[in-house]
């Protein structure tokens, strides 16, 4: 259900982009999804394939997901480490004073699109 909500907004965001930039249709969407964003990518793509049919400009758009690694910063020893492997505790100094630097994002990186005045 969580994925469905995000997909509905993704479609709306892209629909608005089409109108603003006078795009006839989108062929491909590249998303950057962080390792710890909580998004189930398989289910996410299934949801997209179901909902894209509702938007004429998006109905053929293929969703490509690039997973970005999660990185945590330790403010005690000032080192960074891979979040998924070590979690919240710093593997170098065992401090718990750590912060997620990246890995929880879900960003539209780029789209492949056709202009309204372009011939097919």
């Amino acid at each position: 259900m969580h994925e469905m909500g995000i997909i509905l907004h993704l479609a709306k965001t892209l629909d608005e982009t089409c109108k603003e930039q006078h795009l006839k249709r989108i062929g491909k969407i590249v998303l950057e999804v962080g390792e710890v964003s909580g998004i189930m990518t398989d289910y996410f793509v299934d949801c997209w394939n179901y909902f894209r049919a509702r938007h004429p400009r998006l109905s053929e758009a293929e969703l490509v997901i690039e997973t970005t690694p999660a990185v945590t910063y330790c403010s005690a020893c000032r080192k960074t480490y891979p979040t998924v492997r070590y979690g919240r505790e710093c593997p170098y100094c065992h401090s718990g004073e750590t912060w997620l630097v990246r890995g929880n994002e879900c960003v539209i990186k780029e789209i492949e699109a056709e202009d309204e005045d372009e011939d097919p």
Partner: peptide, 15 residues
């Protein structure tokens, strides 16, 4: 087809 860089969050329209 042309490639457009967006770098926008998926929920940008809601934001």
């Amino acid at each position: 087809m042309k490639i457009i860089e967006l770098k926008e969050t998926v929920t940008a329209s809601n934001d």
